[in-house]
Design a protein around this nucleic acid. Structure first.
Lengths: 266, 266
DNA sequence: CAGTGGTCTAGACCACGCT
DNA sequence: GCGTGGTCTAGACCACTGT
């Protein structure tokens, strides 16, 4: 099984393509170990660095992951959570049912993950900052306007799943429960929380992008090589007035689907 | 500027982190050429392969791109197009204004790109296929049900921007304009087209994911290393009945933002 | 032609995981 | 201890770009 010298593709490409084909055909299944670098090197009669180059290619495609001392493995599909745009409507229940028996405590995050309240953890850090340009634009306030910044790292069953930083005009939330970290997590999430201030969110706008994570994001969210992140830039409006902006919500892309519904009134 | 042997990070990591910091600080700006591999190697007193490893890291983060014979360059931000969920409502104008003067011809795609009708090109290939499991599920038909499959590659100003394959129940569209490739592109897009059959789309559902592109997608869409793709799985419903499914729409993630609006009736 | 990145070799030693 | 991947060397030659 030596490589084909007449093939215009370089050796590492041929080998990577061969391995990828084996994965696609099912000869190598998710979780399977690839032949070791030394075995592949002698099999194709090339140097180990050439094999390494082939495997690096597959790692950066998100198809393979390597573990030192153990081997290279076909990546397994991750359990996916669906993030539905309707999650914001669910939060309304906490507002509208005031006075009645409340639903089980939850937030947009617990609903997305289908996890119980106690399996949900938060790292939080609140601060007061002058509005950066991007946030000022979203909130429709002058640059430098005093804002409350709330940074969260969300964990589901002790696994980091999401980073977000959200901003509120300080004039709206200073001295209220929104500005007190001890109130987080708040049953019903921030829409319910804002409602206690008499601020009723009527519209949520989300802008979705994807990119490779920064090294810092990779470390915090424990993202393997070859996996991008989805980013959501969000703002919440109350009667047309922006009251919250999130810049950005960052989620590893191998574990999530974003569901949106667009109604076309006929 | 030799590397620090007491630093626990490997040499290629130190060098990559150093280059990344220079980019983040603005010492290296988008479009700038990095020092050549040979220069960096002698500067840090390491082998060229070590420098190469550092640069490969940055390439796979989407921060740097290399061009043979020319050098390694800091990647420039791409002009972004916004894809708004409201684009589907715009298409309704072509339906509702029947009989009146129609708006300028366009589709969801031309609107997204802000390009003129004549700057828009299509590669199309239509076929009849039995419903694969995923599509059958979306269309709520038995697996194997005869479907029309329409595969498109969209070009804006001769640049490939998007791949999509959409499916319709053949019983719904056989013998209609929908099944005739010569009708594409259709002014107003497929919502307007379906309306001519008396099928009025009332709801569109989209599921957004991100992943690294396959080699085939990288080739067709000319995607540089380190850039993920956004995928949209879509279906259109007419009075609650699925009439179209797209599996999947694939878009390079460095050139696009997906905008969604969620209305919360208060 | 000189300078760039791309491919490749034939080793070496290290760090890690398992038995 | 042994097999795994990770890092690294000191070269070589190829392919491409621009002068």
């Amino acid at each position: 099984m030596p490589i084909n010298p007449t093939d215009p593709r370089p050796a590492y490409q041929q080998i990577a393509d061969d391995l990828r084909a084996q994965i696609d055909r099912g000869d190598l299944r998710p979780g399977d170990r690839l032949p070791s670098i030394r075995v592949l090197a002698s099999l194709h009669d090339v140097a180990q660095m050439t094999i390494r180059q082939a495997i690096t290619l597959l790692v950066n495609e998100g198809r393979v992951s390597t573990r030192q001392g153990r081997g290279a493995f076909v990546r397994e599909p991750q359990p996916v959570r669906r993030i539905a745009s309707s999650r914001y409507r669910t939060q309304l229940e906490y507002v509208q049912q005031a006075g009645k028996a409340p639903p089980a405590p939850g937030t947009a995050f617990t609903g997305d993950h289908q996890i119980a309240w106690h399996e949900y953890e938060l790292e939080k850090s609140f601060s007061r900052v002058p509005a950066p340009p991007v946030v000022a634009d979203l909130l429709e306030v002058p640059i430098g306007t005093p804002l409350l910044a709330r940074r969260f790292v969300f964990y589901a069953r002790s696994r980091p799943e999401q980073i977000s930083t959200s901003y509120y005009p300080l004039s709206l939330v200073e001295g209220t429960p929104v500005a007190d970290p001890n109130n987080e997590p708040w049953p019903g999430g921030n829409i319910a929380q804002l409602a206690t201030l008499g601020v009723h969110v009527t519209e949520v706008q989300e802008s979705v992008r994807a990119r490779m994570p920064t090294p810092e994001e990779r470390q915090i969210l424990q993202i393997p090589r070859g996996i991008p992140v989805l980013t959501i830039r969000r703002r919440m409006l109350a009667q047309g007035r922006p009251v919250e902006a999130a810049v950005d919500i960052v989620i590893p892309a191998d574990r999530v689907v974003l569901d949106y519904t667009i109604e076309l009134s006929s």
